[in-house]
């Protein structure tokens, strides 16, 4: 199981996957906006999205878990 965390504080401006989706390594999971810059958060490994801990519009802190991949 792999927990994908926010690399820095920011706002989730887009969510690209849903629970149950199969993802490959480096697939985009969510888009984080910080300092007026959009940064895709990618899957660290291939697997299935087990849990979404964030939704579009959420403000997240650094190290906060965003997605759980199994």
């Amino acid at each position: 199981m792999s927990e994908v965390t926010a690399p820095m504080a920011g706002k989730i401006i887009d969510v690209k996957v849903e629970v149950g989706d199969t993802v490959n390594e480096d697939d985009e999971l969510v888009i984080l906006e910080a300092m007026k810059m959009e940064m895709p958060i990618v899957a660290p490994t291939s697997g299935t999205v087990k849990e979404m801990r964030c939704k579009k519009g959420d403000s997240v802190g650094a190290d906060e878990i965003l997605v759980v991949i199994e």
Binding site: P7, D26, A34, M35, K36, M37, M39, P40, V42, A62
Partner: peptide, 23 residues
């Protein structure tokens, strides 16, 4: 600030999308 930091982030994420250099 912060244009130059953004460029570092962009170049870093091009080399490895899992790399976050912005902060």
């Amino acid at each position: 600030v912060p244009m130059a930091a953004r460029v570092s982030q962009l170049m870093g994420s091009k080399a490895d999308p899992k790399n976050f250099l912005l902060m």
